[in-house]
Structure formats: C-alpha cells, structure tokens
C-alpha cells in the first residue's frame, strides 16, 4: 500500500529534519555535523532496495534543500543516487555481517558529501578542497557513530510499513 510508504517517508523526513536542525545542529564533532537524512536514506536503501532507496533519497534530499534553503535539487540528486547505489550494493553482499551497515553508511556519507560539494562547485560555489574532504571524513565518522542507534529504528519502521508481495503485484 503506497500510503504506508508515504507516511513512513513523511514521518522520517520531518523527524530527521527537526533533529538535524535542533539537536545535531549544535552537537558537532570537531566542528562537523552529521548527515542524518543521508544516513536514513542509506538505511532505507539497504533494507528496502534500490527503488525505494532512490525515492526516499529524492524526497528527503528535496526536503532538505527546501527547508534549509540550500541550492534546490542538489541534495535531492545526491541522496537519490546514494539511495539507489546503496540498494544495489547491498544486493551484492551474500552474507552481511553486523559491521556492514556502519561500513556502508560511512562510505556513502563520505561519497555523498564529496558529490554534493563537487556539484555545487559546478554551480559556482567556492569550497576549499581540504575543508570539503575534512567535512566528508568527519560527517562519515559521525554518521558511523549514529548508525547503531538510527539503523534499527529506521529498519524496523521500514519493515513494518513494507507492502506485502500481493500488494505490489509479485
């Protein structure tokens, strides 16, 4: 049922944005902030597959852009690609270990921040290469630390609101 997924995305997006701008906006790791919504997209991509990962990435990324008045569409593009790639990559792992979510979150966050900065540079923003790499590393580390707390919650929500095979025509 599509409305279940819509509710899930709406709840996660609102909650994620509210936490990002209130709690995690202040709780920085050596000056860097976590990418909470990107972390959620990775978890959804891992648990629900590339299609929902990409859709969640688009919705959450666009919401981030609009609410935070960032260049519209850039986070949407970044999160969409990350959600899709993570969903695809997860399907390739035959026997996932407990460490897999943390590794995937770290790599995805690092690449996501780099891609975001690179795309913005194309649009004329000026970021120092060193500060971008630093932000990417620290955001990846921060997201990695948050994974044990966020992963089970988002994963459980995703599984609970997952449509039955009969509902998606399988």
């Amino acid at each position: 049922m599509i409305w279940k997924r819509t509710v899930l995305l709406f709840l996660l997006t609102i909650t994620g944005l509210a936490f990002e701008t209130s709690v995690f906006g202040r709780a920085t790791l050596v000056g860097a902030k976590p990418e909470l919504l990107l972390l959620m997209v990775v978890v959804l991509g891992m648990g629900e597959g590339p299609a929902f990962g990409a859709t969640a990435g688009f919705v959450m990324g666009l919401s981030t852009d609009l609410v935070l008045q960032l260049p519209a569409g850039v986070s949407a593009l970044t999160f969409t690609i990350i959600g899709y790639v993570v969903g695809r990559a997860r399907a390739q792992v035959q026997s996932p270990g407990a460490w897999l979510p943390m590794v995937m979150v770290s790599i995805a966050t690092f690449l996501g921040v780099l891609f975001y900065a690179a795309f913005n540079r194309v649009l004329g923003e000026r970021f120092g290469a060193l500060s971008v790499v630093r932000a990417a590393v620290l955001a990846a580390a921060y997201n990695c630390l948050l994974t044990p707390f966020v992963f089970p919650l988002v994963r459980a929500l995703g599984a609970r609101l997952r449509p039955r095979p009969s509902e998606v025509g399988l």
Binding site: G49, P50, A51, A54, T55, G57, F58, G61, L62, D65, L66, P71, A72, G73, V74, A76, L77, T80, I81, Y84, L123
Partner: peptide
Amino acid sequence: RVRWLLVILIVASLAIVTIDYRSKGNGPF
C-alpha cells in the same frame, strides 16, 4: 522499472536545479 525510476528522479532533480539556478532565489521553491 527501477532503472527508469532512477532516470526519472535524476532528471527531475536536474530540472529543479536548473529552475532554481535561473530563478536566483525568487522561484517557486
């Protein structure tokens, strides 16, 4: 279908980037 979905979402994102870039902060977004 999943690949098509990805293509649609990427194209939509790029369209939004373009509209926002051209409107210079005074657009619908």
